[in-house]
Simulated assay, not measured.
Amino acid sequence: MHNVVILPALGDNYIYLYRYDGQRVFVVDPGDAGVVLENLQKHALDLTHVLITHSHGDHSAGAKKLKAETGATIFSPDSSAIRETDCDITDGQTLALPGSPVVVIGTPGHTSSAVCYYVPAGLDRPQPLLFTGDTMFIGGCGRIIGATARDFFDSLCRLKKLPDETLVFPGHDYTVENYEFALQVEPGSKVHEKRLAELRKISKQADMVPSSIGREKRENLFMQAGSAEEFAELRRKKDIFG
């Protein structure tokens, strides 16, 4: 069990509730407070912390209401943009939540201050978890905004060093589109053809996740880029593709 409740929201966003201490949970990237509050009430959960990966509204807009309704502590990498922030977090910091330490990994690229959240393996979670926001999607990555291709390439290289079994929970469902793009770049790829066929049979957005670091290293073209220049060219092509 990975203890993660997957909440599709806003069309193609993912919000995540992580149950870490009985009925206590933290939430990652609450772009829609209503979806979160509904699930807290439905399952009698106590929200203690809000973890935000970057400042864009579709990942942070619900923070203000959640803080007002639950008293949760807001962690973010950009308090200047997210005024409700209680604690500015930085690369390498460990959030010492009871029974579930969360490590902050700085991943500039999509924004200059973007982070990912890494939950190491533990007694109730045999595999580590990674919440990637818009840094890495299944089969893809976010657009370059406010940083450089070199920054983004270096950030993905950091993620590649995590254990292959790490489960990946991205901020959006662009999965089918990403594999369609991969086939445009590598026509006839049996790996991408097979995976795309599997994905097209999935009807529920929540069933698209999680992926794993190992799978992303094998199938995600952006994770396979050998240089910042190669990464930048791939991202330019993807920007045109969609």
Rank of each mutant, 00 (worst) to 15 (best):
K64Q: 11
T166D: 00
H43V: 00
S100P: 05
N178C: 11
H172E: 15
A182R: 08
V4L: 14
T94H: 00
T85G: 02
P170C: 08
A63K: 06
N220F: 04
C157D: 10
G146F: 12
R218P: 06
E180A: 03
R150N: 13
G31H: 03
G92S: 08
R125Y: 14
L97N: 14
Q93T: 06
I74M: 06
I240Q: 15
S55I: 12
F131Q: 12
N3T: 02
L17E: 09
A149N: 05
Y18G: 10
L156E: 12
S100T: 12
T73S: 12
L95V: 04
M208W: 05
G109N: 05
L162M: 03
L159M: 14
H172K: 15
N3I: 06
G133K: 00
E233W: 10
R200W: 04
R236V: 04
G122L: 11
P101F: 06
F181Y: 15
G226P: 08
Q127D: 12
L129E: 10
R158L: 12
Y117L: 02
P77F: 08
P108T: 01
T53W: 01
H43C: 00
V115T: 02
R200Y: 10
G171R: 05
V28L: 07
D29E: 12
A33T: 06
I145E: 11
A197G: 05
D21M: 01
Y16P: 06
F231L: 12
T70W: 07
H192Q: 00
E180M: 03
R158C: 11
E180P: 01
I138H: 03
V36E: 04
P98A: 14
G226M: 14
S113T: 10
Y18D: 08
D134P: 08
K237H: 13
D239R: 12
T48K: 15
F169C: 07
G99F: 13
T70K: 07
R195S: 05
T107E: 01
S227Q: 11
A9T: 12
C116A: 14
G22I: 03
Y18T: 11
V191E: 15
I144T: 09
L156W: 01
S113R: 09
D29L: 04
Q224N: 03
L129H: 08
Y18M: 13
K204M: 11
Q184I: 01
V176S: 09
F169Y: 13
V168T: 03
G34E: 12
A147M: 00
T94V: 14
R150Q: 15
I15M: 15
I52V: 12
V119Y: 09
R143M: 13
D86Y: 01
A9Y: 02
L7M: 07
L167R: 10
S155L: 01
A114E: 15
S113G: 00
R125F: 13
V209N: 01
S227M: 04
T94D: 13
Y18P: 04
L10K: 02
L130V: 08
V102M: 05
G106M: 00
T166K: 02
L123C: 02
C116P: 09
H43D: 10
K67G: 04
E198Q: 15
L159R: 06
I89E: 03
R215E: 15
P30Y: 14
G242E: 02
V5F: 13
P101E: 14
T111Y: 09
S155K: 02
D12F: 03
N220I: 10
I105S: 09
V36A: 06
I6D: 00
L234H: 08
A232D: 09
A44C: 02
D151I: 03
G226H: 12
E193D: 00
E219F: 06
N13I: 01
E180R: 10
